[in-house]
């Protein structure tokens, strides 16, 4: 195994240490609450927002927070609170699709690499390393150049770039499961490879995959924000936290609130997914159980 493959995947190492375990419940609670808040904002935005988030209202431009506009208005007089609410929808949508693509492509590939012949497994993992050479943002910029920049290309690019971390994780988990006695018993009993993969490997690595999903969600949210900031993500007039930040950059001296609000929304959402991942890891990762 190369050195790079030995790196713990995801940005949250040390969660399984004793000190980390003590804080696991707190992580789970705070992370869960933050994620729930984002989900709630997004869900409510389908039914109700204080104002139309795309409605331009020139006379009311750059107003501070008030009873009518809780978080004030932007340079076009659009309601910031409504934009944040609908922006949550964009963020979650991007996260769900990007991480969904990554998990659905990466996990089976990782299991395949673990269960197939050594040569095929090596080939899959080398392909994996190759995709890793195209970071999400770079891939999204390439996709943007070729297919035109919008939410879908951004989601696909982030998904493809995140898939290798799922594959690596799934392979590691699957190799461990394949070494257990019950898998050996299943093999001796003549079970087919696919049956072993579905009945034994996948359920046993599900915990790892769920943790990785949460962590990858945070990465996807950051990537989408960066892409929208560069003008390569969600297109106007669909509200997006990253683009709100980009639009606020010129008005920073006049109205720092316009940058603060979406910036805080991004940071809290990412923090939520990372903490949730930390907490879940301590609960679900069997390797940490063994470490005590």
């Amino acid at each position: 195994m190369s050195g790079v493959e030995d790196i713990p995947s995801g940005p949250v190492p040390g969660a399984g240490t004793r000190a980390g375990r003590r804080g696991a419940n707190a992580s789970l609670l705070v992370g869960g609450a933050l994620v729930a808040a984002v989900v709630l904002l997004a869900l409510v935005s389908f039914l109700w927002t204080p104002h139309d988030p795309t409605l331009v209202d020139a006379p009311n431009r750059l107003r501070g927070p008030s009873a009518a506009h809780w978080l004030g208005t932007d340079r076009f007089g659009r309601d910031v609170a409504s934009q944040v609410m609908v922006g949550a929808r964009t963020t979650l949508f991007v996260g769900v699709v990007a991480v969904g693509v990554a998990a659905l492509v990466g996990t089976p590939l990782g299991v395949l690499a673990a269960m197939s012949s050594r040569r095929l497994g090596e080939l899959v993992m080398r392909g994996n390393d190759l995709v890793l050479a195209f970071p999400a943002l770079l891939l999204a910029i390439m996709f943007g150049a070729v297919f035109g920049a919008d939410t879908l290309t951004a989601m696909l690019a982030i998904g493809i770039a995140t898939a290798p971390s799922f594959a690596r994780l799934a392979r590691g988990g699957a190799v461990e499961v394949l070494g257990t006695e019950y898998v050996l018993a299943a093999r001796v009993a003549g079970r087919r490879r696919l049956a072993i993969a579905v009945r034994h490997v996948l359920p046993n690595i599900a915990g790892l995959v769920i943790v990785q999903t949460s962590v990858s969600f945070g990465i996807a949210v950051l990537a989408e924000a960066a892409l929208s900031f560069l003008g390569l993500g969600t297109r106007p007039p669909t509200p997006s936290w990253g683009r709100m930040l980009q639009e606020s950059q010129e008005l920073l001296t006049v109205s720092p609130r316009l940058a603060l609000v979406p910036g805080l929304a991004i940071a809290l959402a990412v923090l939520g997914f990372n903490l949730l991942g930390d907490g879940l890891r301590d609960r679900l990762d069997p390797r940490l159980e063994a470490r005590g």
């Binding site: 000190a19 804080g23 900031f229 930040l245 920073l252 940058a259 910036g263 991004i266 923090l271 903490l275």
Partner: peptide, 25 residues
């Protein structure tokens, strides 16, 4: 130790460009 861990957890969640915008300001 816990404060440093908490701060690093927060730092991980901040996009680099946001840090840039705030630092410029």
């Amino acid at each position: 130790g816990a404060v440093i861990s908490g701060l690093s957890q927060l730092g991980v969640a901040v996009p680099g460009f946001l840090a840039g915008i705030v630092l410029v300001q």
